[in-house]
Amino acid sequence: MINLTERHQHIINKLQQKGQVAVIDLCDELRVSSVTIRKDLKLLEDKGLLFRTHGGATQYNPYTIDLPVNEKENLQASEKNRIALAAAGLIEPNDSILIASGTTVLALAKLIQPSLLKNLTVITSALNVALELLHHPEVEVIQLGGILRRSSSSVTGPYAESVLADFSCSKLFLGVDGIDLEFGLTTTNVMEAHLNRQMINISQKAIVLADSSKFGKRGFGKICGFDEIDQIITDKGISDHTFKSLQGMGVKVTIV
């Protein structure tokens, strides 16, 4: 029978190869019970060698932290710009769109070309998005009000949610802090998660803009499950497993 050290080495090797492991797979491979595997994962986590997740473990910390927007803007900048360019191509004349907060949707705002789009209306919770579009007098911008989150330069709260109830939008462009195949889409702030849910409710199509570093991560506030979004635009850093899983859940995945 395989001993404790050999089991632990097998788990570490598989983590290094795939980035994550599942309890059920390890049980089959090592021919031990789930209780044994969970004890092994706890011991390895206590040594700082992995992070336990629901049903398995990951090599990387799955929990996101709330960084200031000016710091986030420099992370995966080239990927964000490619994602934003693909998203900008989805905006059509006469659209009334919602742009949530985040650095990837800010990159989208910078790429919108109003000269090619007639009668474009943009509703946003993000101050930096509104200021970016302020340079285009032909775009009607509606800035939501509410409690200001300094870390994201955006508003949240019941006032913003109540104002949204009066609108119906063709598309929502949503940034997130985490995408977990089991838990869904998340952000680091629960009030922002509530506002994002209301944005989804009033939009005909919900489009998530997220670079591949957001996958396998969880924020504190759950926004929604995958059944409530239509499309994810991301970069080629996502795994084949994630890509196929999302497609299996009916989500269109665009890789740039």
Rank of each mutant, 00 (worst) to 15 (best):
I65T: 08
V190A: 04
M191H: 14
N119T: 00
Q17V: 06
E161G: 06
V69P: 02
Q59A: 13
K47H: 08
R149T: 13
V256I: 15
I255R: 11
I232F: 14
R218Q: 10
G248M: 03
I123H: 04
S245I: 06
V32T: 15
Q59N: 10
S170E: 15
D166C: 06
S239K: 15
A126L: 08
K110Y: 01
I91H: 06
L127E: 02
M249V: 05
G221H: 05
V141G: 10
L164Q: 10
D230Q: 07
F51K: 00
F215S: 01
A88E: 05
K222D: 11
H8T: 01
E140L: 02
I24A: 11
V23I: 09
S151E: 15
L106T: 13
L44K: 11
I83T: 01
L172V: 09
S125A: 15
Q204M: 15
D227L: 12
E138G: 03
Q59M: 12
L108D: 05
L116W: 02
Q231L: 07
A22W: 03
G19D: 00
E6M: 02
V253N: 10
N119M: 00
R31P: 02
L15A: 14
A86C: 03
K118W: 02
L120C: 09
E29H: 02
L85K: 11
L44R: 12
N196P: 04
Q59S: 04
L209E: 10
F226N: 00
K118Y: 02
P158E: 09
G146R: 03
R197M: 12
D25Y: 00
V190W: 08
G19F: 02
S101T: 11
P68N: 07
G250H: 11
N119F: 01
G184S: 06
Q17I: 07
A210D: 04
H10V: 01
E228H: 04
L106D: 06
L43M: 13
H241T: 03
D211W: 08
